[in-house]
Design a protein around this nucleic acid. Sequence first.
DNA 1: TATGAATGAGGATTCATTCAT
DNA 2: AATGAATGAATCCTCATTCAT
Lengths: 191, 191, 191, 191
Amino acid sequence: MASNKYEEITKAAVMLFERKGYHATSVQDIADEVGLQKGSLYHYITSKEDLLMQLAHRSISEFNGQMEEILKNASLTNRERLHLAIENHLKYVTKNVQLTTVLLREAFSLGEDQHQVIQDLTDKYLNLWTQVIEQGIAAGEFRPVHARITALSILGSINWVYRWYKEGGKLTASDISKLYSDLFLDGIENR
Amino acid sequence: MASNKYEEITKAAVMLFERKGYHATSVQDIADEVGLQKGSLYHYITSKEDLLMQLAHRSISEFNGQMEEILKNASLTNRERLHLAIENHLKYVTKNVQLTTVLLREAFSLGEDQHQVIQDLTDKYLNLWTQVIEQGIAAGEFRPVHARITALSILGSINWVYRWYKEGGKLTASDISKLYSDLFLDGIENR
Amino acid sequence: MASNKYEEITKAAVMLFERKGYHATSVQDIADEVGLQKGSLYHYITSKEDLLMQLAHRSISEFNGQMEEILKNASLTNRERLHLAIENHLKYVTKNVQLTTVLLREAFSLGEDQHQVIQDLTDKYLNLWTQVIEQGIAAGEFRPVHARITALSILGSINWVYRWYKEGGKLTASDISKLYSDLFLDGIENR
Amino acid sequence: MASNKYEEITKAAVMLFERKGYHATSVQDIADEVGLQKGSLYHYITSKEDLLMQLAHRSISEFNGQMEEILKNASLTNRERLHLAIENHLKYVTKNVQLTTVLLREAFSLGEDQHQVIQDLTDKYLNLWTQVIEQGIAAGEFRPVHARITALSILGSINWVYRWYKEGGKLTASDISKLYSDLFLDGIENR
DNA sequence: TATGAATGAGGATTCATTCAT
DNA sequence: AATGAATGAATCCTCATTCAT
């Protein structure tokens, strides 16, 4: 399972799913990429769909893992938590644009059951973000905004980044996360 | 072109593309939905891909149209423009969730050339948003933020709405747009 | 039947069948060419195949007609008959390259029964040629060659012309028929 | 490529293309003939059209090969060359009537580009024939005929043979080639 | 005469997956 | 572990023809 070859296949799949999309990527394409015959691939993978599932699952799990770390850390204010959450998320997205794209754009192609699993993990991620905001409001750090909508709003914003971020652009992940943190904390109004 | 039947087909396609995705929707599915033979469909459409193209094009054009109206209106402050832009966008998204989903999720399945056309219109939309923010900064209405990134951020946020909005939920489009406007103008920090 | 429109359709069909081949020509193509709707065409034609049949039949009939004239003319020697046959055939081919092409290249696409009709007429044509040669041999005008093979040989030669003849080339039908007559009468050997 | 199965498919295709024509032969027909599923065929072939292309190419190449051999052989007079050319051509046609039919009748169904390739090879073949005649004229072996037209004439004649030759008929390829050589060298006139 | 909607069968091709070797 | 032949279902699309208006 965790063999070298499997990781190779995984990488090829991420790359191809991102570039061409899940449906437009054939098992043959993946086989070609790793220098194997189509049939041989099935020694390593269960199915094309399962490959997608593994990738999506890995990605959302890592997002959740990061967020749980942040919430566990008792020494942080919620303002710091939010800032860190944004930074971590954007760092992950920018360092793993392809994988993030697979999660955010392609997971929908999973069968219903599999897709639900990913959906649940995604909901959980949203809940963790909501929690930070709720805590911040309770602590008087944040204004009494609608926590869930705010979480959805921020997440939408930073998820969207996979759509335009290009490696080697002018802005680093840090730059971007500063801009986003600023925006969501202060807004753009000139006071 | 604008025949009754074509609109019927269009509606069926929007519905199916949204529910199952473009690739998972067969021409047969669409034909079944409108009660026509598969072959008969081709009296109205050029190809399945063209159908997708028409839908995506219609959608992004309407987004652009709205935004151009706003920019043309000289009696508005840029603060008002931004507010209106958010409101219009969200109203369109919530009133046409399926169509918006087709634009935002499925347009990627278009062939390269067609996709580029949509991409260009999408870029144009981004530029119009950027313009509002730049003007607002110049006029001293907004803080000197990074206009383009801010536009991307807000657009990401409100585009994301198609992913979670359900008709008949507690929040109306107006409610949501008020929350979003607030957020992007003032941020959440408690000052 | 013999209406103006039918002739128009006939001309369009000849042109298209020659240019693209019978199978690659759709009824739509023909309709477009005459500025009619596909359905309207069926007021004039029975079927696409029948259209082909009419064309092939007309062509081979005219070939046969010419040849019968020649044989009926008692004042001709068989040498003259052969010369005239070659000339007439080549004049017809060069003046009606498209129609000849349809006969010689596309008639094969007819259904078995229809094709047999054309085949029979073609066989008849061969017989008429054979007759001229046989008569010429009997009369001592020609050497005692194998009449049928010789007829096939000459016919092959002059039928082939539709494959390379281009209107407006250097050689006229008369030029070509002189060269061919010469060749088949005298051969190329230098004596 | 040169696998057993591919040759089997090739043979089935030749047979079917000859019998029914390229267009009237479905991939299903070919699959049935070799006892494979339609889809399985695509392990061996690229497309139906490519199959046709391979066959046409093989055939015209062999014609050209034969002719080049003849021209290379310095010990032959041009009279002998012409005789040999006719004999070789007819032997090939009669031994491979089906394949020759595919070349001469069906190659036209190739797409433009592919067809041009075959056309070019066919033109080359014509040039080789023209060369023999030109050389013969220069050497005083042949009368000063129009070399190209003469080549076209002879080639037309012997190509036509695929249209009437039936295996097991009275005349062998040798018989036929003797008759044709005679005809083209001496003509039919009784002197 | 002309339309154009509708048919329904047929066609080439793709593709994920299986399995004997 | 690897192959590659084979499957069989699915997919998009074309097209000659019919027919009500």
